[in-house]
Design a protein around this nucleic acid. Sequence first.
RNA 1: GACCCCAUCGUCUAGCGGUUAGGACACUGGCCUUUCAAGCCGGCAGCACGGGUUCGAAUCCCGUUGGGGUCGCCA
Length: 484
Amino acid sequence: MIVKTRIAPSPTGSAHVGTARGAIWNYLYAKKHGGVFALRIEDTDRDRYFPAAIEEFKKDLTWIGVEWDELVPSQYALRKRHLEVANQLLEKGAAYKCFSTKEEIDAAREKAESKSFKFQSPWRDADPSTYPMDKPFAIRLKTPQEGVIKIQDIIRGDVEIPAKDLEDLVIIRSDGESPIYNLTVVVDDHDMEITHVARGEEHLINTFKQKLIYDAMGWDVPQFAHLPLILAPAGQSGKLSKRHGAVTIDYYKEKGFLPEALFNYLLRLGWGHGNDEIISKEQAIEWFDFKDVSKAGMRFDLDKALSLNAHYIREKDDQALTDLAAPFFEKKIERMLTESEKKTLLAMMPELKTRVKTLVEMADLGAFLFVTLPLDEKAQKILEKPIPITDSEDKISPQESINLLIQHFSDFFVKPTNSDRPYLKWESDALTSSFMHIAEEMNVKIGKLLQPVRAKICFSTITPPLSESMEALGMEECIKRLKA
RNA sequence: GACCCCAUCGUCUAGCGGUUAGGACACUGGCCUUUCAAGCCGGCAGCACGGGUUCGAAUCCCGUUGGGGUCGCCA
């Protein structure tokens, strides 16, 4: 039998990292076994149906590198089939018509005050001859009143629950036609011939209910794997949710994460393979197995995800990275980059990429290459701080030292108009040697000499190497900034 | 509250009856250095607790504690 897994989201917008991780694992498991990975959109709840959200979800999945082999674009479209199964369950006596209204049930629930209240429908064993005429009814599944329901889970082993703890679940709403989740999943998973159902642990209880439907229909039960949940950040309780922020794929995409970094991080969150940390998709396909997934819930560690992202940024080819980074720079400087500026960015990429953890950080670090910026606080201070002369009590003011530097630049780098005197090209190596030469001449430490220059050129004390930056900017712009 | 699941450094994990309990992130010391990174070398830090089982338990069993999930005519 061919392995077939699926991810079955009910999209409400950008994919939750937990859903994305579930998709990754399911995808890997299918690929590992040469099987099929399916995407099924669970849109049976029409009150929460947003087509745009579905598109966004698909985009997120694609971005992170998960491709589906099969698509069920709308579970809602399958409702006739769901109803048909519900009627079969009715015929088999595994389900019954329940004429109790939602209001009656809610009232009973309220009155009970116990959270563990189970609604006992008076219609469960009612004689059909007593059914009211022209009254709407829901269809409920008859759960056994004694014994246990048992399931096998790849991750957790055998799990069982007393049957009496389960309420007779509604499978068709009292509108007489709308199927409910626990019915639709079973029918679709069966019809699609899903062999492995791996979903969040929050579904564990549902699985017992669903087992009842499989059994009543005489269908084979798939293999189950209930995946541990990603928990709220340390100090906060509960599972990770929207209110903790930073939970959607879209968030990380906009923050400047590389898809392979987030893929790697999510892959490793709850699963490991020896001491391996950096794992490619191909390697993951070979190594991943649900049985190695940890059982306990875990916390999302942004620092680790960032460090992985920094790693993948460093590994990435400069040209590809430039293409990826360009939009982040454009957002930062609030205009498009020209072709020549893109070349500048490419040239600076080796210096930029070892210094950042995200593409947003890269745009912050490299923006000075394309626009002038207000000096940051520390840069401001540097320009006020005199430079000590080595082996002396004397000091030289930053502006004075910069003026001297400008003078030297015109000696070294400017082509003389009426002379054959040699001059240097404005390139990083030449700039570096000239800095060393000037520092020696002025009898100051090179680091001290360069700090104010760095401030004027890059507007910050934290920058890529100065010589490279100045080459990228060109002599004219550098002189202009130094004189400003 | 009831039912179910879970428990190795702060975090993510390796470990599957005999290990100096390993790695990664974070933190930290050093080297390198033109700021900041990167890189290299080093450090700190863990088997929740209590009982068993066993010659021997992080590993197996029970309990306690702690965390998580579920309790809808949502998915």
